[in-house]
Write a protein that binds this DNA or RNA. Structure first.
Lengths: 208, 208
DNA sequence: AAAATAATGTTGACAGTGTAAACATTATTT
DNA sequence: AAATAATGTTTACACTGTCAACATTATTTT
């Protein structure tokens, strides 16, 4: 038993699993999802091009790991923002949406892997189904609390969560894929826009 | 000058350009965007693997043509639905959004090509910039008319169009990429959900 | 009509891809 | 110390996008 407090030095390479995921993310961030190749990952990690197969079933399995890590990060960031806020539950609702978009904007590569096409990307296991992802449970819970306090209108919370989710996902996607009209929009203007869009539409969920 | 009423029989093959686009769409519909290869297209079109290069600069150019055709279809379908409706302008607004989602659901492969990642897919020319796409002009115009008649609240129509767009794009994307919680949702339930989500959120755009 | 040219299609090549099999090495267990 | 499992490498294969060289056919020019 050697070095239990730090298992970064295991077997031959030194837990390649972790390194491969991180390297994949690096490359995705630099060159996009499309140019990600197993061989590039392996080369940058300093191993032969077939080494990753001892740690992942195939290329998709690495992307799955990246997606899982992304959902983790998203959850932590959202929880942190909510904890820092001094507002009421309705504010938490707004924060969760804005935080969601912020994550997408800050980690677009990550986000795209997380929300790729299920049918085309076999890395989407059951574990990555929306129902079982903590961030969405969080969103739904917030909505339920708001409903109890009369801050949001009544209705199926699952459905309302879905509505809220549609907005932020839609805006985030349009934003990171550069499908927004960009006539003289700097960073600041975009953030205002984002805030305005989300709040406007969320107001459709308020009590009559 | 031969056969002016039908130019399907030109040069060697018979306007390959058109055939290649259609074949690309066929394959995308059957096997997804990810498995689309130039060589498959060429083979199915009955030409050699390099023939497409006489008609398109590269693979992305074909996807660009597919995207353009998609925007055309989307526009025509939306206009048709609006023309058929007997409601007022506010109804037209709702219809445009629902029609948008319907297009995405009916032609998911097409839709994904139309809204791929700009940075990663070089087929996005200026011509495909959102500002210059007729469907979005249509949406904005409808909003402006609604505002004049007091059916929607005041505010920058471009921004409101963007808000409306975010919802439908978000819902459409989640739907076609199968990121919706699917606990016992059949086709009918999904359409209700879709209607409910859009109308609920659009109500955030109504006058105070 | 014949010759020249442009348009279109084919073949062969190249580097890059994912993945599997055979082999090599090192750590762990017996 | 021997046996075994875990990990890494090499080689190979079929497939990809793209280019260059060549072949054929249509169009234009003479």
């Amino acid at each position: 038993m050697t070095d239990t407090k730090n298992q970064s030095q295991s077997y031959h390479h030194g837990n390649l699993t972790r390194v491969l995921i991180d390297t994949a993310l690096e490359i995705i961030s630099e060159q996009g999802t499309k140019d990600l190749s197993l061989r590039k990952i392996a080369k940058r990690a300093g191993v032969s091009h077939a080494a990753p197969y001892r740690h992942f079933k195939d290329k998709n399995a690495i992307l799955g790991a990246v997606a899982r890590q992304g959902f983790d990060m998203m959850l932590r960031q959202t929880e942190k923002r909510i904890a820092k806020s001094k507002g009421n539950e309705l504010d938490h609702f707004a924060i969760s949406g804005l935080s969601y978009i912020n994550f997408a904007v800050n980690y677009p590569a990550h986000y795209r892997v997380m929300f790729g096409t299920r049918a085309e990307n076999s890395y989407f296991s059951d574990e990555l189904k929306p129902e079982s992802i903590p961030v969405f449970k969080l969103l739904r819970d917030i909505i339920m609390v708001c409903q109890e306090k009369g801050l949001l209108k009544t209705g199926d919370p699952q459905e309302m969560a879905l509505a809220a989710w549609s907005i932020v996902h839609g805006f985030a996607m349009l934003r990171i894929d550069h499908h927004l009209p960009d006539q003289g929009m700097d960073e600041k203007k975009l953030r205002e826009l984002q805030r305005s869009v989300v709040l406007t539409l969320y107001s459709g969920l308020r009590p009559e």
